[in-house]
């Protein structure tokens, strides 16, 4: 049941690097991360890779496998043929630190720029009341494991370093949508989404949705509705007024 696969792994740092070929044993039921670990334990002790849960829950092991952004712990070896060369490279949108580990600080910077949850000032802890149907929309977005695959794949920044400054990326635009749809959040977020976080730069290609390992419908359920809210806000003063009235604390 085991066989030797041909792995080609990117080794190097921010200055230089190359693809290195490794023949490596593969057993039944294994995932790409198992193979990377086997390399680490044998011929490449210092091969750098991030991982934690090995079950698709922490979003640490993001990399590009045959050019596709994936979680290595959820990519089964059985999805490849035994003769296929499997090329493993770091996420392209972020600077390489070493081997498969990239500098993802862009994402932490963006996270810090999104205004936080604004709790209703007159509702005491323990008195929050929300219906399941009303929390479900935001709950979908809170499934995000921050693997940054969507941030990596979105073409607005993938090959456009210059856009990084003005653009929060799908994960953090979705965070704005999440808070905007939170039944008890009292902040006004729509204009800022467009003007400060770059919602307008997204042209709904859905590449982010396609790579999301949590199967979150980022584009359809977060970005497009958010764009609609922005449009409504800009052109329809009544909707705007309605939002203000109905989004009262505790309502």
């Amino acid at each position: 049941m085991s066989y030797d696969a041909h792995f080609r792994v990117w080794r190097g740092d921010s200055e230089k690097g190359e693809l290195v070929d490794y023949p490596v044993e593969v057993n039944e039921g294994e995932v790409v991360l198992d193979i990377i670990h086997r390399l680490q334990q044998t011929e490449a002790n210092d091969l750098a890779v991030r991982w934690n849960c090995k079950a698709g829950k922490c979003g640490s092991c993001s990399m590009e496998i045959n050019g596709k952004p994936r979680l290595a712990c959820m990519t089964r070896m059985s999805t490849f043929t035994e003769t296929e060369v499997i090329t493993v490279t770091p996420l392209r949108t972020f600077p390489v630190i070493r081997d498969l580990v990239t500098d993802v600080s862009f994402n932490y910077t963006k996270a810090r720029e999104i205004p936080s949850f604004a709790p209703p000032p007159d509702v005491k802890p323990g008195d929050y009341r929300m219906a399941q149907v009303d929390v479900e929309r935001s709950q979908e977005f809170r499934k995000c494991i921050e693997c940054y695959l969507c941030q990596n794949v979105c073409h607005v920044v993938r090959d456009h370093e210059e856009n990084k400054e003005a653009y929060a990326g799908p994960r953090y635009l979705m965070r704005i949508a999440e808070l905007d749809m939170h039944p008890l959040d009292v902040a006004d977020r729509q204009v800022a989404a467009q003007e400060e976080h770059g919602l307008g730069m997204c042209n709904i290609t859905k590449c982010c949705t396609e790579v999301c390992p949590e199967h979150i419908k980022i584009t359809d359920n977060a970005l497009i509705p958010m764009k609609e809210r922005v449009v409504d806000r800009k052109y329809d003063p009544l909707v705007w007024l309605g939002n203000k009235i109905f989004k009262r604390p505790g309502a």
């Binding site: 936080s116 949850f117 709790p119 802890p125 929050y128 009341r129 929300m130 219906a131 399941q132 929390v135 935001s138 709950q139 809170r142 808070l179 939170h182 959040d185």
Partner: peptide
């Protein structure tokens, strides 16, 4: 909840 957590709800919210 005051930090923004969204737990699953009972029928009475």
């Amino acid at each position: 909840e005051t930090y923004g957590a969204l737990f699953d709800r009972t029928p009475d919210g």
